[in-house]
Structure formats: C-alpha cells, structure tokens
C-alpha cells in the first residue's frame, strides 16, 4: 500500500518535472503534415531501426508465459519469441497502459530491436489488438452488435475510452451518430475469454 502510494507520488513528481520541461523551454512547431504511430501502426511495416547496427524486429503471437518483464510468445506459424519489456516500451491494451495489465493467453503484436541473444527488446507492444471491417447490426447502451462477413461479433463500448470518427473527422466520445446497417472499421482489444471486442475506435463513413 505505502509502496504503491510512494511510487504513485514519484510518478506525479516525475510528471510535474516533465511538464515543466515540456511547456517551459520547448520548441514550438506549427503547421501540418502527415504520418502516424498510433494503435493502427501495429499493422504497418516495421520502422527502420535508428541505429543501423541493430536490426528492427517484429513479433506476433499468443503469450504462453511471463517471467518478470520477459514475455514468452508462441507465433501463429510455430515460431517462438522472447520479448523483453523495458521502461521505454509502450504498452497498449485498449488504452495506453503498463506491463501489469498483460496476461498469459493474450495475443500481441510487438515491435522493437533484435538483440544478439535472440530476444527482442520491444519499443511498442499492442496487446489483443484487432482491426476489423464490420457492418453494424444492432446498437445497445453498452455494446454494438457487429457482423464481419458471416461471423457475429459483440463490440463493447467502454466509457471514457471508446471513440468514434465520422467521415474522417476528429475522434469523439459521441457515438450517437452510429446507424444500423452502416459499414465501419473497428479498432479494439479482443477479449480472449469470450471472443468479444472492447472498442477503442469505430470509424464510420470512410
């Protein structure tokens, strides 16, 4: 208890320090351009490594074991990966989170650098991420009924997390413009227990 409070306090102090640095002497860059490395980037080609001597690596599969900060991952094609999480590893599981929320049995996509000992030092890990094109077949207070081809899916709406984008506009928490019969792209986190999806983002009218 006291330990977690202490570490929480440290975390806030650190944020305070970083805010001062970020807002105080920062470079201000205006105007617009293109690019992206959000959750969707899990499906993009791996970025070239900054250091030419370190080859970049990509891994995908189900977590079969966890040992401190090393994930033992069984790939879909029979391969095996050891993925090392560090302080600098970003972890996404429906939202930006920490290594504590990762469980054995989760699926993941990871990107990082291949280490000489065969492990992957992860830069970014996306847990249970799914990206599906669906048709909305029903709307309820806490979920959307979806079909993907002939498969039925339940997409849970998570308060303060689920966002929608209409016609390429800004992401908003307003889901009231969804309609039955619409085609949609759903980015979310798969729930291994029941096969449903927690929706991170639903894009409509693209």
């Amino acid at each position: 208890m006291s330990h977690s409070q202490e570490s929480g306090g440290r975390r806030l102090d650190r944020r305070r320090f970083l805010t001062t640095a970020a807002v105080g002497g920062a470079t201000i860059v205006g105007a617009s351009a293109l690019g992206g490395l959000d959750a969707e980037a899990a499906f993009a080609d791996p970025m070239p490594s900054l250091d030419a001597a370190i080859p970049s690596a990509f891994a995908e599969g189900r977590i079969v074991a966890m040992n401190r900060n090393v994930l033992d991952v069984a790939g879909s094609h029979g391969e095996r990966h050891l993925i090392q999480l560090t302080n600098a590893t970003s972890i996404w599981k429906l939202r930006t989170t920490t290594a504590e929320s990762i469980e054995v049995g989760d699926g993941l996509y990871a990107r990082g650098a291949a280490m000489p000992d065969g492990t992957i030092a992860a830069d970014a890990v996306w847990v249970n991420i799914v990206n599906v094109y669906v048709t909305i077949r029903g709307i309820a207070k806490d979920r959307l009924h979806l079909t993907h081809g002939s498969d039925e899916l339940v997409g849970h709406i998570v308060p303060d997390t689920t966002t929608a984008s209409y016609l390429g506009g800004a992401l908003t928490a307003d889901l009231s413009r969804t309609r039955i019969g619409q085609e949609a792209q759903v980015l979310g986190a798969w729930r291994p227990a029941d096969g449903a999806i927690d929706i991170a983002r639903v894009s409509l009218g693209h």
Binding site: R15, V29, A31, S32, A33, L37, D38, M47, S90, W92
Partner: peptide
Amino acid sequence: ENSLAWQTAMPVVRSALLDHW
C-alpha cells in the same frame, strides 16, 4: 500525428504513446 511537429520528431520517437496527463 497530423502535425508537422510529429513529422519533425518522428526520427527520434521509437515507441507508441507511453504516458499522458
């Protein structure tokens, strides 16, 4: 991600979003 700032900093950034407040 739509900003020029992102494009400028992208060669330095390695992870996805780590923390926000």
